[in-house]
Computed example of a mutant assay.
Amino acid sequence: MSRVDDSQSITFTTKDYSPDYSNYLDYDEESSGLCRKSEVRQFVQYFLPPFYFTVFLLGIVGNILIVVLYAYYKRIKTMTDVYLLNLAIADILFLCTLPFWALEAIFGGIFGNFLCKTAKSIYKINFFSCILLLSCISIDRYIAIVKAVKARASKKKILLRSKLTSLVVWVSAVLLSLPEFCFSLQDEAQRSCSTVYPEKTVKAIGFAVQVTAGFFLPFSVMIFCYSMIIWKLLQAKTFQKHRAIKVIGAVVGVFVTTQLPYNSIIIVKAMDAINITITDCQTLKNLDIATQITESIAFLHSCLNPLLYAFVGVTFRKDLLKILKGFGCIRTLIKPQQSTLKLSSPSQTETTGSFLL
């Protein structure tokens, strides 16, 4: 985010750990030995605000459309429906924090201490909830397609289970965001909202938890579930299976492309937090800039979620056309071609219609 998180200042004569309130240290290297980061500050001021506002505008439209479609045209009948609605809400809440961080990047110091903690906590809660909900969607699709008999047997309890699972996701996201609330503060001198860990071990643990819960866990779940789904689809004698496999490839590919670069940087920062291995000023500045770029790329997932998880489905596209027709955007309602994908049971098509059909 614009308040480049959790960096430490260093000197070139000692390896003592000394957490700072900002990554934009503005000291004279020659006189004090501290790394001057005015270049990072300048990059943030010019790069982040337009990027954040663009992501906000693109993402908010798609996710609000999903909420509207569920409210007016589509009844919530399956676990996927519950997860998609929760995912859209989480994306909306997450995206709504971006304009504030854009303003903070431009002007600095717009938050008080409490608002700084609150804003960073809201950001983390919705970040983790989005990622965990993607894992839930993967598991639901795996059960619906690979374990079709089990899916039919639990159909009566499906909504209750999905609501309870969503509740667990939100509670887990709140717990994972607690470090942000505890260690974030507004530094008036540096005019930034930053996360300041009390010691390097706590900082390293915080990074490790973020990478594990925010990338490796959901990525492992997605790889397992979608691999089993592809194996099942390859056994189906239908042309539509190739389209379904392409959709799966897009889902996994987008997740890796948007999330892997940022989490790789987090791993580097976690290792540096433990050993203070990076002592070169230019390397530190490059790492800060790389953090901003890769984290911004990670935010693109909130824009792409509606396309990957909802509007790829025939039902969602049909309902969207109804909305456009209602507003006079189109004159005739185009009836989507019905899919010919045949799985092992009708309930599979119903449960995963927004994903494969």
Results as ranks from 00 to 15, higher is better:
265 I>R: 02
110 I>Y: 00
217 L>R: 04
44 V>S: 05
257 T>A: 15
343 L>N: 02
219 F>H: 12
239 F>R: 15
282 Q>F: 00
191 R>F: 08
120 K>S: 12
203 K>F: 02
140 D>C: 10
131 I>W: 03
248 I>C: 00
231 W>E: 14
305 N>K: 00
95 L>Y: 09
306 P>Q: 06
326 G>S: 08
282 Q>D: 10
226 Y>I: 11
123 Y>L: 14
98 L>V: 10
1 M>C: 12
302 S>V: 03
149 V>H: 02
213 A>P: 06
340 T>N: 14
237 K>M: 07
20 D>E: 12
41 R>C: 07
242 H>C: 06
109 G>S: 02
160 L>S: 04
216 F>I: 15
135 S>H: 06
293 I>N: 00
190 Q>P: 01
236 A>D: 08
130 C>T: 12
338 Q>H: 13
78 T>L: 00
291 T>K: 04
308 L>C: 04
97 T>P: 10
198 P>K: 07
5 D>N: 13
167 L>W: 03
31 S>A: 14
273 A>I: 01
305 N>A: 12
44 V>I: 13
175 L>V: 04
308 L>A: 06
260 L>K: 03
30 E>H: 11
17 Y>C: 09
63 N>T: 10
278 I>G: 04
209 V>K: 05
202 V>I: 11
189 A>P: 00
331 R>D: 15
39 E>A: 11
39 E>K: 02
117 K>E: 08
254 V>T: 13
328 G>M: 06
230 I>K: 07
351 T>F: 05
286 N>P: 04
142 Y>K: 06
197 Y>E: 07
69 L>Y: 01
349 T>Y: 07
49 P>N: 13
116 C>S: 10
141 R>C: 10
48 L>I: 15
110 I>F: 00
219 F>V: 11
154 S>I: 04
241 K>I: 14
120 K>C: 09
7 S>Y: 05
202 V>Y: 00
14 T>E: 14
2 S>C: 09
324 L>R: 12
213 A>S: 15
114 F>V: 08
12 F>W: 07
293 I>F: 01
23 N>M: 14
48 L>P: 01
308 L>R: 04
202 V>P: 00
102 A>I: 06
283 T>A: 11
322 K>G: 10
288 D>C: 13
188 E>H: 09
69 L>Q: 03
71 A>C: 09
164 L>H: 09
284 L>K: 12
122 I>V: 13
114 F>I: 07
29 E>L: 14
277 T>S: 14
43 F>H: 06
72 Y>D: 09
42 Q>K: 00
59 G>Y: 03
88 A>D: 03
298 A>D: 08
275 N>V: 09
224 F>D: 04
299 F>S: 03
111 F>I: 11
224 F>V: 12
29 E>A: 14
25 L>G: 01
357 L>W: 05
205 I>Y: 09
80 T>K: 05
216 F>Q: 09
50 P>M: 12
151 A>F: 05
350 E>M: 08
